[in-house]
């Protein structure tokens, strides 16, 4: 539990800290770094407060927070430019991951053998996660903008967006990728755990987003 709290605090602090040190460029790098970490953390499910969930939720919520900040601070033209830039880097990363899998491993190395087994067992998870993130990021941006038109309260906007998108990127996603590995009941439990933590973490990130949005300095 303590480790989880430290991880959460580090993720929360990193957003304003990186922006303070490296401006908008830093935030873009942080976005891509958290994407990479979320892909790695996909392979680890943890138990905190007796709830099971995937640890990838922490970097994932950090990415969504950066999307909210960009949506609030940038105009549509800059937002599109940033989305295109980040997407091209993510595409590059995906191609490199495929190449990484294609390299024929050294026969004597046990770590690489374990790595290959883990990746081949969870290949569906990797592929669907890449597709899901694109859908999820885009729908988060769209739904947040729709909700924003009828409400000015940041808390309501973020909570509602998270609750709506969570059905797809937590519950549905977990059921599809895990049903073949751990069964339907366990997949639903894991999905609900992810959903619950996503909502709680999104609410915890609101002060950070609020601070970033209300800075005088423009992005």
């Amino acid at each position: 539990m303590i480790v989880f709290i430290i991880m959460l605090i580090l993720s929360m602090i990193s957003i304003p800290l990186i922006y303070h040190l490296f401006n908008k460029t830093g935030l873009k790098i942080l976005f891509i770094l958290y994407y990479l970490l979320s892909v790695i953390f996909l392979f680890k499910n943890v138990n905190v407060f007796n709830i099971d969930f995937s640890i990838m939720i922490v970097p994932y919520v950090s990415i969504l927070s950066i999307i909210y900040i960009f949506t609030e601070k940038l105009n549509i033209k800059d937002m599109k430019k940033n989305i295109f830039m980040v997407s091209s880097y993510i595409l590059f990363i995906i191609i490199l991951i495929i190449m990484f899998l294609l390299y024929s491993q050294s026969v004597t190395d046990l770590v690489t053998t374990n790595l290959n087994q883990m990746l081949s067992k969870n290949i569906l998870l990797l592929v669907l996660y890449s597709i899901m993130t694109v859908i999820s990021f885009y729908s988060t941006y769209k739904i947040y903008n729709i909700i924003k038109k009828s409400s000015d309260v940041l808390f309501i906007n973020i909570s509602l967006t998270t609750i709506l998108i969570g059905f797809i990127d937590c519950i549905l996603f977990n059921i599809i990728v895990n049903i073949g590995i751990i069964g339907l009941d366990a997949a639903i439990k894991l999905g609900l755990g992810n959903y619950l933590f996503k909502i709680v973490l999104s609410i915890m990130f609101i002060p950070v987003i609020y601070y970033m949005i209300n800075r005088r300095k423009s992005l």
Partner: peptide, 13 residues
């Protein structure tokens, strides 16, 4: 972090 019982082989790996 403490592992979950779901898909524990992957998490252990």
């Amino acid at each position: 972090m403490i592992l979950s019982d779901f898909n524990d082989i992957t998490s252990l790996t």
